[in-house]
């Protein structure tokens, strides 16, 4: 059957005709109706999940984990030993956060995360991945030329810093524990969390320096 595509003309004299919807959106409606009618899906559960990801799950969660690790050495230890469990202590768990590995940046080692296959990503701590994380150039270049990628993100690593690239997959997902910036002694956990950007936990940025 033929489906009207976006941009095709509609009869001007028929006022009940709307713009033809996008083919993609109609495929989604079809799936939603099919699965709902078969009792496989609850539309309310779909809405609830979307709202959760739009409002409550995002990189601010990961920033809380990092700030806690910076201020509590015991927590940092637990986080590096069993990421999933330590992250769950702060209430962040669930889909794509089941098997978390936290890798720590130091003066000698910088870590950076990619998913070369598709876009495996730690949703409970970082939310859904940014477009560039899902793009072919990043997936390819993070492995071939990680220092060049970092440069594009404005990070110049000294030659003697070892760069480790971690490839996420369906079973394991990585979170980078960035280095605590200098000049942040005495800052509260909340203030520190403000310095932790999404990209610093993927490893394509450093934690921000404190203002002033």
């Amino acid at each position: 059957m033929t489906i009207a595509n976006e941009g095709s003309s509609i009869m001007a004299d028929d006022h009940t005709h709307n713009e033809p919807p996008s083919d993609t959106a109609m495929r989604v409606k079809a799936l939603e109706t099919l699965l709902t009618e078969k009792g496989l899906l609850d539309p309310a559960a779909i809405d609830a999940l979307v709202e959760t990801y739009e409002t409550r799950i995002g990189p601010r969660n990961g920033a809380r984990v990092v700030a806690r690790a910076w201020t509590d050495p015991d927590y940092r230890q637990r986080l590096l030993e069993d990421g999933t469990k330590a992250i769950a202590e702060l209430g962040f768990s669930g889909v794509q956060g089941e098997d978390m590995v936290v890798v720590e940046n130091t003066g000698d080692v910088h870590n950076m995360v990619v998913c070369t296959l598709c876009s495996c990503y730690p949703w409970p701590t970082l939310g859904l991945p940014p477009i560039w994380f899902k793009s072919a150039p990043y997936r390819a270049r993070a492995v071939i030329d990680p220092r060049g990628v970092l440069k594009e993100f404005g990070v110049e690593l000294s030659e003697d810093v070892e760069l480790r690239v971690w490839d996420s997959n369906a079973e394991l997902r990585y979170l980078v524990l960035p280095q605590r910036p200098a000049g942040t002694e005495g800052m509260s956990e909340d203030e520190l969390a403000e310095l932790v950007s999404r990209d610093s936990m993927i490893g394509t940025a450093l934690a921000d320096a404190p203002a002033g």
Partner: peptide, 30 residues
Amino acid sequence: LPRLPWESEDGPVFREPWEATAFAMAVRLS
């Protein structure tokens, strides 16, 4: 190789409603 597309941390999670629905359907079925 092409340069990377950029996206800020504050951008919308989903660009269109259908993306959100497709996302959530897969998660719920799993």
